[in-house]
Design a protein around this nucleic acid. Structure first.
Length: 575
DNA sequence: GCCGTTTTCGGCCCGACTGTTTTCAGTCG
């Protein structure tokens, strides 16, 4: 199987962990970690760069040595160095490092002194009170280890929550905090603010009048299951839902610096601090300092400004070139929810939706949309009561009727046609050609070999009636892996055929991912952002899709349905 | 292992909290 960026990143990341346990030079370890991070965020395929003979050391954080290792991985699929390391240090120890409280030092000590090389062995040793006897460990650490192993095992690994789940938890919490007398600013920072598709834990920043009991009220919040840590500057709690939430209190003069610091990403911050250091400045969460003198920090903009940068939207702060882009004045003007003029995929009662065409159209009209495409399933998706050609024809008449009755919005005749195993479509051409919008997607045969899967999808795009390739990877976050396909070939096919590719805004799909959507944008392909709503309420998911598009550096220009139906109609013509 | 307007060596981002310690190491973000 051709080597993907994530395969290279994973090898480097494993090497970093193993070197960490071996207590190697921390800067060497960091180099591997940064390389892994950089590669996983790259929108270009490194394999292609190797094939084209590009100089990999032009990538930031990649020097001669790592460039050579990448080539080895691309050509052979693995790296002898990793194999060798895994002979010296059991690979299972990496699993232990995933536990909170467990870093390389403790893992190493437990392995050497007690032979612990698995979660099971760790738990057993802790329950038998073997761990507290070791130097540097104690009773409390031992208890915590038991707890985290149990939590880990019951959650099935490190749990990351969907952004929408995080919103449901954090909104009532910040409302409570804002209502406390004396509290001023309350904002959520971290990956939540960067709108990452999943969130590990939540960071809330607060300013308040001196003496306001905000830490106390936070620790007593009704949803708190356990107070993990409580200090003057920071309190950490675990909520019943499993979220860990950190609350940090800052002075007004530090608030902007704290927002930058805790919004991250970590890699973005490291880049900022490196820049600062060159100017003899120091950045921390309290401000920007020259010696002891505070130079900036009250607002985020002031922190960026003193480094000669424009304020950077949180969604871009991943150290994927945003700092360089700002320096060149090439930061994109990111798409906003207000730019959206219509929705190009949703379902009605005709297939598996909950609401009628009319209700869906009214809801879209209320959102101020210019158009809404009704794209019910085709017959192959029988669990969803998909439409055959006859039902679809009658369905189209129903849509015509709604259009006659309801003014002020164009209800588009569409379908989400299933791509069959052989790449043919689930409906005949003579009905597809009558539709305003044809959205094609796969639902079955998700485990075809890569080549076959790629060809299948391209064959579907060959049908001249297809406009949009929807939820291209078919993943469900935390539940269903993406299908295996050659995405760059797919993108080329989309481009050649004047088609479009979707960012599905369902909060558990968000398919395309940020990196893939960025790749499409860079190739000059236009995308659609569609809710795939199955009810009126589902139309509200647009904001998640827009957030994903922002993380992909997309502008309103890059997205088809920021245009009026008049203009969309012209662009949907394939030739 | 990377990097360079202090350049080919000697740096490499910064602080809070905890637990186990009597001044700090480990971990985390």
């Amino acid at each position: 199987m051709p080597v993907q960026n994530k395969d290279i990143a994973e090898i480097f990341s494993r090497i970093a962990d193993l070197l960490d346990i071996k207590n190697e030079n921390p800067f060497r370890i960091r180099a591997y970690r940064q390389a892994a991070q950089m590669i996983s965020g790259l929108s270009r395929n490194v394999r292609d760069m190797v094939d084209e003979g590009k100089d990999l050391s032009s990538l930031s954080g990649i020097g001669k040595d790592l460039a050579g290792k990448i080539e080895t991985i691309v050509r052979s699929g693995n790296l002898p160095q990793l194999k060798k390391l895994e002979k010296e240090v059991p690979g299972e120890l990496i699993d232990l490092m995933q536990l909170p409280e467990m870093g390389p030092k403790r893992v190493k000590k437990l392995y050497h002194e007690l032979g612990i090389d698995s979660l099971g062995a760790l738990k057993k040793a802790a329950l038998n009170h073997k761990i507290r006897e070791l130097e540097g460990f104690g009773e409390k650490t031992e208890d915590k280890i038991v707890q985290s192993v149990e939590r880990w095992q019951s959650a099935g690994g490190e749990k990351r929550f969907l952004l929408i789940e995080a919103e449901q938890v954090v909104e009532p919490l910040i409302k409570m905090l804002r209502e406390i007398e004396g509290v001023r600013e309350v904002e959520v920072a971290g990956s939540y603010r960067r709108r990452k598709e999943t969130v590990g834990d939540l960071d809330i920043l607060v300013t308040r009048r001196k003496g306001t009991p905000v830490m106390e009220r936070f620790a007593e919040y009704e949803d708190v299951k356990e107070v993990v840590a409580k200090g003057e500057a920071k309190t950490s709690v675990r909520l019943r839902s499993g979220f860990q939430v950190d609350l940090r209190v800052f002075e007004k003069s530090s608030y902007g610096a704290a927002m930058v610091y805790f919004t991250g990403s970590k890699d973005h911050n490291v880049s900022l601090r490196k820049m600062a250091k060159k100017e003899n400045l120091k950045i921390n969460e309290y401000g920007v300092f020259r010696g002891d003198k505070s130079m900036a920090g009250e607002t985020e903009a002031s922190v960026y400004e003193i480094l000669g940068l424009q304020w950077i939207p949180p969604e871009l702060r991943e150290n994927r070139g945003e700092i360089e882009a700002t320096q060149k004045g090439e930061l994109p003007e990111l798409i906003t929810l207000e730019d959206m003029q219509g929705d190009l995929q949703c379902h009605s009662k005709a297939s598996d939706g909950k609401d009628t065409i009319e209700d869906m159209a009214k809801a879209a009209k209320e959102k101020g949309y210019n158009y809404l495409a009704i794209t019910d399933h085709s017959k192959r998706v029988s669990v969803a009561n998909g439409l055959d050609a006859d039902r679809l024809r009658r369905h189209m008449e129903d849509i015509d009727q709604v259009n006659e009755q309801l003014g002020g919005i164009h209800v588009l005749k569409g379908v989400e046609v299933d791509i069959l195993k052989n790449g043919k479509l689930d409906l005949p051409d003579d009905v597809l050609e009558k539709l305003d919008v044809v959205v094609a997607s796969t639902h079955y045969y998700r485990d075809l070999p890569r080549k076959e899967q790629t060809e299948r999808i391209i064959r579907a795009l060959d049908n001249p009636h297809v406009h949009i390739l929807a939820h291209p990877f078919g993943r469900i976050i935390n539940k269903r892996d993406p299908i295996d396909m050659d995405f760059e070939k797919i993108l080329e096919a989309v481009k050649e055929r004047n088609c479009f590719i979707e960012i599905n805004a369902q909060p558990d799909r968000l398919d395309l991912s940020d990196v893939h959507a960025k790749m499409a944008g860079e190739m000059g392909i236009k995308l659609t952002i569609s809710t795939d709503a199955h009810s009126m309420n589902g139309l509200n998911h647009m904001k998640w899709g827009v957030a994903q598009a922002r993380r992909a550096w997309l502008t309103a220009e890059d997205v088809l349905n920021t245009r009026s139906w008049r203009n969309v109609k012209k662009l949907l013509k394939r030739d």
